[in-house]
Write a protein that binds this DNA or RNA. Structure first.
Lengths: 145, 145
DNA sequence: CTAAATGCAAATAATTTGCGGGGAG
DNA sequence: CTCCCCGCAAATTATTTGCATTTAG
C-alpha cells in the first residue's frame, strides 16, 4: 500500500512493520488527533498495539518528515500529515478547530521576515480566538464580572 | 503595595493573602514563566508555599483577569500580566522567545473576521518559526538525513 | 466565629525509559 | 546470528483533588 513509507524506512536501515503502517494510516484518517486518539484508532484494528509504540512511531514518523505535530492550545499536541498544510483556528470557547488557507498568513509572514527577522512556520501552532457561532451566542463564559 | 489585587479580591468576597501577592509579583517579575518557574521564584521568598497553591492562585488570577496564559509551543503554558499584550514569536530551533507588537496582526485579524468569521485572540498562542540567528547559522538541525 | 485559603499527601494524566523476547534479514 | 522493534511494567513529569488545619475579615 504505502510504498513511500516502506522506502523511506528502508533508506535509513529501518524496518517496515504493521504498527508503523497502522499509525500512519490513523494519522491520515483522523486528520489531526492526539496520540491517545491515534492509539484508539490503531487499537480498533489491532488491539495488542501498545500506546508506547504509538508515541515512538509518531516520533519516528515526524523525524522522517511524514507527519507533523501542531499545538492546538491546551493539552496534547495533535498530529497530521506533513502535506496537510493549513492554519488551525481554535475557538477557545467551544474548542472547535477550523482550518484556513496558509496564504492568509502570507502578508504577516512577509512582515515578520522583514521587520522582525523571523521565519514564520505557519502550521506548527494554532491561532486562538472565538468562532462565529460562539460570537453570536450571548454565552456567559468565564468572566461573569 | 498592590491595592488593585486586594480590591479585586474584596469585590468578589475573596481574601488577600501573602501567597497571592507573591504569585502575582512573580508573574510580573518573570515576564512569562511556567507554573514551576513561578513557584521557584515564590519559594525563594517564602519557602513554605506549596506548588499546589501556585497552581490554584494562577488559576484564580486568571479568572480575575489579572494574568493570562500563553501556549508557547511545547510543555507547560506560561503566565504573564494581562497588560503585557503582544505576540510571542518562538524559535523552535533555539527556543528563544521574542515579542512583537500586536498591530502586526491587525490585518490578519481583520481578514479572519471577514473571511473566516473568526475573532482572533492574538495573545493566547505563540507564533512558531525560526529566529534570525538560527536562520544565519548553518545549523545541522533535526533532519541529518 | 465562619468561610475561604493553605499545605500535604495521594490521585490522575501524559509521556518516557529500561528491559527481555521475538522476528526480519 | 545480530540488531531492530515491540510489549510490558515501572519511572517521570505535570497537574488536580480530598481533607484537615489555619487564618483573614
Amino acid at each position: 500500500m504505502d510504498t513511500t513509507l516502506r522506502q523511506t524506512l528502508h533508506r535509513r536501515g529501518l524496518r517496515m512493520t504493521p504498527q508503523r503502517q497502522l499509525v500512519l494510516d490513523a494519522v491520515r484518517d483522523l486528520g489531526h488527533a492526539t496520540p491517545e486518539q491515534i492509539c484508539a484508532q490503531v487499537q480498533s484494528a489491532a488491539p495488542a498495539v501498545n500506546i508506547t509504540t504509538v508515541y515512538r512511531t509518531l516520533d519516528l514518523l515526524e523525524r522522517l518528515g511524514m507527519v507533523r505535530h501542531t499545538h492546538l492550545g491546551h493539552g496534547a499536541p495533535t498530529y497530521s500529515e506533513q502535506e496537510h498544510t493549513h492554519v488551525h483556528l481554535v475557538c477557545h470557547s467551544c474548542g472547535a478547530v477550523t482550518e484556513a488557507q496558509t496564504d492568509l498568513m502570507d502578508d504577516l509572514a512577509a512582515r515578520l521576515r522583514r521587520e522582525c527577522d523571523f521565519e514564520l512556520d505557519v502550521t506548527h501552532v494554532a491561532l486562538s480566538g472565538r468562532c462565529g457561532r460562539c460570537i453570536e451566542r450571548p454565552s456567559d463564559e468565564e468572566e461573569h464580572q
